[in-house]
Design a protein around this nucleic acid. Sequence first.
DNA 1: TGGCAT
DNA 2: CGTAT
DNA 3: GCCA
Length: 349
Amino acid sequence: MNQDLVRELDIIRQSRALEGEERSALSYQRALSIIKAYPDKIRSLKQVEKLPFIGVKISGLAEEFLDSGEIAESQTIKTSERFQTLSLFSSVYGIGPNTARRLYNLGLRSLDDLKVYYGVEREEIDVLPGEVVEIEGKPPRQEHGKPLAREPHEHEEGLSDSWIRIALGLREDFTKKWVSAKHQHRRGKPESNDVDIVFTHPDAEKVKGLCKRFVRKLHQRGMVTHVMHLSGFHGHNPLRTTHWDSLEKALTVFILPQSSPFYRGTRRRLDLIFAPPQVYWTAVIGWSGSIMFQRDLRQWAKDKLGMKFDSSGITRRYDSKEIHPKTEKEVFDLFGLEWVDPTWRNADA
DNA sequence: TGGCAT
DNA sequence: CGTAT
DNA sequence: GCCA
């Protein structure tokens, strides 16, 4: 409805994030989420000024957009070498805003510059314990400066009858009950290049170590070409409070074997998440909604319920007691929120 | 002025 | 600091 | 950058 304005604001949001102005970026994110959810075409400044999370600065930008059809600052940002270069660098796995700026300040401008800087041609990485695999370049989120293929997915409603279930060799009956997948698709974004799959098993013991074994199997079959992160692969620092490693996870690049009837040579990012059964639904929710949805849900849990929510569980803050919901709806009920379909958890640009 | 998810 | 949602 |  107001997607052009949203896109303009998102450019500024991206720029703020790349420049390390996190809080400003968050404000743009919120504002554009609100505008995105606004049900009518915005034609006047009055409409915008009534909206929450839109203050003096952003309503001014909206006014400019209404007058001219664009925002000068967005245009300037978009065409600037700095923005384009920082975006490019940040698109490489492992390079965030800070590293991107550092590399830029060193005078680097292209992926070729990065290859020289990192000596990537000779790089080898440990993919699995005891194995060494040659890679071409960095584990690519991009190739040749362009995003990996973004054509629509090959199907489908759920994982249970999908090409990827078959490709991964998952049993259909089990999958229906214990595997939840393709949340981008679940959210109604079939054009996404990501596939996320959350696994569990009624027996918590059987989940332990499954991530590594499963990835090893896919790698042996040539279906996983890169493993960017494997829980337990990086040394775990117990001083770190982050829950990043509390679920078993593998962040990989996936390609179908040529023998597959679905083979198209498309490489995708495939994220595999293995959750013990008691936190399966929090994992599903944590991997389903947009970033803004997650932040809002977590803030709500904290402010209204005094609880801590993330993909690895829900705990009461005062005694750290864990809560183990048995369905997605139980989580919403607990939080006093109306259950909404995943397609409505899509607040990002 | 402090908070902004984990 | 980087990554995932 | 916006809000309480």
